[in-house]
């Protein structure tokens, strides 16, 4: 109980806070190399981070749709997409075969024990974030419906224009 009170006190500090940039945690490349989320950068241009999993139907649909438009998006806005797989050890080995099998053109990283997912408060996949040039979260959206990609790129365009 004492601890709970202390924690509530600490939470009081949150009143002074602001929401913002992405947390620093360790994730992995598809080859298992440990990297930091600090390497998710794009030279001051917008970034899309999309959490997905190999077993999630709407995620695959979403990323396949992004893949179709990706070249145009990059050309127009300079955006860079990082797809973060939350597959655990069961399906992690099939991430790379699936990504290559679908010939997705963007960067894919893995978060096998959900450290990045938790730190980003992702409850369900798909969950997609748009970051501005300073790596601050500018927009986020969960679930995917046909046409969601139009709204996403609209958000990216807004940031690209400000830049």
């Amino acid at each position: 109980m004492k601890w709970n009170i202390i924690w509530l006190l600490l939470l009081g500090f949150s009143m002074f806070g602001q929401s913002g940039s992405i947390p620093t945690v360790e994730i992995k490349t598809m080859d298992g190399k440990i990297i930091s989320t600090d390497s998710i950068t794009n030279e001051g241009k917008p970034i899309i981070i999309s959490f997905w999993a190999t077993w999630c139907k709407p995620c695959i649909k979403e990323l396949t749709t992004f893949a179709e438009h990706y070249d145009e998006w990059v050309e127009e806005t300079g955006v860079k997409l990082f797809a973060i797989s939350v597959d655990d050890q069961r399906t992690l080995p099939s991430v790379k075969p699936l990504v290559n099998g679908k010939a997705w053109p963007f960067t894919v990283y893995c978060d096998p024990n959900g450290d990045f997912k938790r730190a980003m408060n992702v409850v369900n996949v798909p969950h997609t974030f748009v970051l501005d040039g300073k790596r601050q979260i500018a927009w986020q959206h969960s679930t995917f419906a046909e046409g969601s990609e139009d709204e996403l790129i609209e958000q990216v365009r807004k940031i690209a224009k400000k830049h």
Binding site: K2, W3, I6, L9, L10, F13, S14, F16, G17, Q18, S19, G20, S21, M120, N121, V122, V123
Partner: peptide, 30 residues
Amino acid sequence: MKTIIIPILLFIFISEKSFPQSEWQVSGDV
């Protein structure tokens, strides 16, 4: 009780000084 709170408050106070460039960030989910 006090013995726990004081170090934590001190820690937060120190952190105010240690990160003059950064601000508190809050996030959460329900």
